[in-house]
Design a protein around this nucleic acid. Structure first.
Lengths: 140, 140
DNA sequence: TGGATATTCTGGACTGAGTCAATAATCATG
DNA sequence: CATGATTATTGACTCAGTCCAGAATATCCA
């Protein structure tokens, strides 16, 4: 079944003008398997799958893929960058205690959060929303 | 006139149960003078004012003050932590090009952004919004 | 005023996340 | 298959921030 993902993703990589390599496929599979994963978790996941990969290759793959919109990087305050394969408009809800992250569909519609009272002359293209709270498990 | 700020802030520190020190006053003055300032800029600012201060003292002061709600820390993706003296409900608009940050008053009211479609069982206490765009100066 | 106690400051070592740069391997394409 | 362009590997390095232990200060209370 990972065959499917792979062949789909091979095409996606090519369309983006990126070469298809074992490392990139493995990195993508890791992100797909575990959304909101950190770079070093990706390294271990990929290592246990592919055998070995350099840290740099992982970062290169992650940067290339997120630059081309194939994956998305989120950087919550106080933690390392997380990667996810969902690239549509959605937001995140993070537990202050255990840092668990869940996806939140956009409350209002397509790109709703772009409305600010006063844009100060900026050309706003994205509104990033992070909800902070305590997850069910941590509400002892 | 900085006398005013100082004596007000002395009281605020005491109310928060924190001791009043020259370093803390200086750090607070730096944050007040330049909102959205980074830690190492604070160090230089304070050094040119007080003469010398240790990095640790600055971080301690910043952590203590933000823990007690005297200042606010924001950590936009891809940059170091920024500190500001506004502690009320407001959001930020950041230029993708030059990283300029401006405050945005909360579009809807007091704590409006707390409405998420599905809270997944979380007890949500804050919604943090970051608007990304291009500032007037960078729109060549 | 003068300690006793709690808190803060200092300087240096250290960590973790991520980047840089040079070399080696691999791919794409004629 | 030759050649140039991408991608991987390796190792050094940066940057932001924390940890630690001893020295210095501030606050409280008699």
């Amino acid at each position: 079944m990972s065959k499917h993902i792979d062949s789909d993703f091979r095409a996606t990589l090519k369309q983006a003008g990126l070469q298809v390599t074992a490392q990139r496929l493995a990195v993508y599979r890791a992100v797909k398997a575990c959304p909101h994963i950190m770079a070093d978790e990706i390294i271990s996941t990929v290592e246990s799958e592919i055998g070995t990969i350099s840290r740099q290759a992982v970062y290169d793959a992650l940067n290339a893929m997120s630059d081309h919109g194939l994956i998305r990087r989120i950087q919550p305050a106080g933690s390392a960058a997380l990667y996810e394969h969902r690239v549509d408009n959605h937001h995140h809800l993070i537990c202050r205690n255990c840092n668990a992250v869940v996806d939140i569909d956009c409350a209002v519609g397509e790109a709703p959060c772009l409305i600010a009272d006063d844009n100060h002359g900026y050309a706003i293209d994205e509104a990033e929303v992070v909800y902070w709270g305590i997850c069910p498990d941590c509400r002892t």
